[in-house]
């Protein structure tokens, strides 16, 4: 998933394709309607209605969904289509789930001994919605619940599959350390002095970045350096949403910055929301300290 609207549209079209497909086919209630489960339900709810006890007992109508639940067992009735839809949402970072709506119609009472069967269909998948919990998609299913083959209730259920907006902050991970070697040590020494040094071939004057032992244009091993002015523009960028990496808090923009001197460098674009970064956006070099050892060149977006 990225911040680009056209990407959302393509993803939403894939989700929409599941509308109308079965979510559960000929599910069979794990237990027939029975007195112990009714009693446990009434105990939990504090429901003392005499309608739910005795020889003429009915099940509390609001138990409708409970008779279709798989508990800790597999759900053989769940269709590949529904599994795929949920997997698509999981894989795009919308891995958390919360039920938001439940609408039940009760056509006839359920009584102990009733054998339950049910069929379910994916009624709708919403567009991307921003909620307090995080951005996500609402999935609505409709389940017809039968008792002894006779339609007894209709259960409409809506869940929100979302990417949590407030994940607990993981123990602060440190950014990965740069690998410093003989060929690039001068670059990192420059960074330590808050200078972004570009290599220049002393034979043909070609600038090069990142640092290399020799000139790609003329092959000369001799070089000196030029300090970048710090001005540049976003040549290209990506927005990282998923998967998360330690020490990186998604979403964030990774930019390919073209420096005023003409060479390009990969770095973070900071100071502007990730979804406001654009190709051609002017940026200015900054040095950001991440911990007591690590300082990195980053680029502050300059919004007009």
């Amino acid at each position: 998933m990225s911040g680009e609207p056209e990407v959302h549209e393509e993803f939403e079209a894939r989700l929409k394709a599941y509308e109308g497909l079965p979510a559960a086919a000929t599910g069979v209630g794990r237990d027939p309607v029975n007195e112990p489960m009714i009693r446990h339900w009434c105990e939990a709810m504090g429901d003392t209605s005499p309608a739910y006890t005795g020889p003429d007992a009915i099940a509390p109508p609001t138990m409708l969904q409970a008779w279709t639940m798989a508990g800790l067992t597999r759900r053989p009735e769940r269709t590949a289509a529904y599994d795929e839809l949920l997997a698509l949402l999981d894989a795009s970072g919308h891995d958390a789930v919360v039920a938001t709506d439940c609408a039940q119609e009760y056509l006839r009472p359920l009584r102990p001994g009733d054998a339950i069967t049910f069929d379910s269909v994916i009624e709708s998948v919403s567009g991307r919605k921003t909620t307090k919990l995080g951005a996500g998609y609402f999935v609505t299913t409709r389940t017809d619940v039968r008792a002894g083959g006779e339609l007894a209730g209709i259960h409409r259920f809506r869940i929100l599959k979302y990417a949590p907006a407030h994940r607990p902050s993981a123990p602060a991970e440190r950014r990965p350390r740069p690998v410093v070697n003989r060929d690039n040590a001068g670059f990192w020494e420059g960074v330590a002095r808050h200078e972004l040094l570009i290599q220049r071939c002393t034979a043909c004057d070609t600038l090069r970045f990142p640092w290399l032992p020799g000139c790609n244009t003329c092959g000369s091993p001799d070089w000196d350096t030029v300090a970048a002015s710090g001005e540049g523009t976003v040549y290209s960028y990506v927005v990282m949403h998923h998967p998360p990496f330690p020490a990186f808090e998604p979403p964030y923009a990774v930019g390919l910055i073209e420096l005023a001197e003409g060479v390009r460098i990969v770095s973070n674009v900071v100071g502007v929301p990730y979804d406001k970064v654009r190709i051609g956006m002017p940026v200015r070099l900054e040095f950001q300290r991440y911990d007591d050892e690590l300082v990195l060149p980053v680029f502050q977006g300059v919004t007009s």
Partner: peptide, 12 residues
């Protein structure tokens, strides 16, 4: 106890 629920629709 003789009241019959016909429909319950809730939003959380």
């Amino acid at each position: 106890p003789r009241a019959q629920l016909r429909r319950v629709a809730i939003r959380l």
